[in-house]
């Protein structure tokens, strides 16, 4: 089978609300939608700030500093691309900019025994397909 699914991970299909995020990744800048009214970051992107109900929103670059909120070491592939990537670490990281502001990502170059909830992590970029650079995270100097 020569399906794309075996060669690449599921590829993001940007829409009007999310194009900025993937354009940012291509430029290796982590951009998150932010409310210009109250300063709240909004991820996943939505057309309104659910804090102050402002619709005046714009992407803003964030630092890439984060802590590890949750993780799992995947031992079985449920998509062909990941069959030869096992084990891989799927994670949720909380960005320092705002409590509860999290990305789903992978932790790379950290041995499993060193993974702990709450550990500081930092952004690294990984190209996984032509024109697809993903924000991943690794251990930060503490």
């Amino acid at each position: 089978m020569t399906s794309k699914a075996a060669i690449y991970p599921p590829l993001p299909l940007p829409n009007e609300m999310t194009q900025f995020f993937w354009d940012g990744c291509q430029a290796r800048k982590l951009m998150i939608l932010r409310c210009k009214g109250c300063g709240r970051y909004i991820h996943y992107p939505r057309p309104v700030c659910n804090g102050c109900l402002s619709t005046d929103l714009a992407p803003a670059e964030v630092s890439g500093e984060a802590t590890l909120y949750g993780y799992t070491v995947a031992m079985q592939a449920f998509h062909p691309y990941f069959a030869d990537k096992l084990p891989y670490t799927l994670a949720l990281v909380e960005l320092v900019e705002q409590a509860g502001l999290r990305l789903t990502t992978n932790i790379v170059d950290v041995p499993e025994a060193e993974l702990t909830t709450g550990m500081p992590v930092r952004l690294v970029w990984r190209e996984v397909a032509p024109d697809l650079v993903l924000p991943m995270f690794t251990k930060a100097a503490s």
Partner: peptide, 20 residues
Amino acid sequence: ANPEYADDDRQFVMPFGSVA
């Protein structure tokens, strides 16, 4: 279950292997 593309909110999780 075997998609080549991830749309809507899934675009923020599936490329990283959050697929099950």
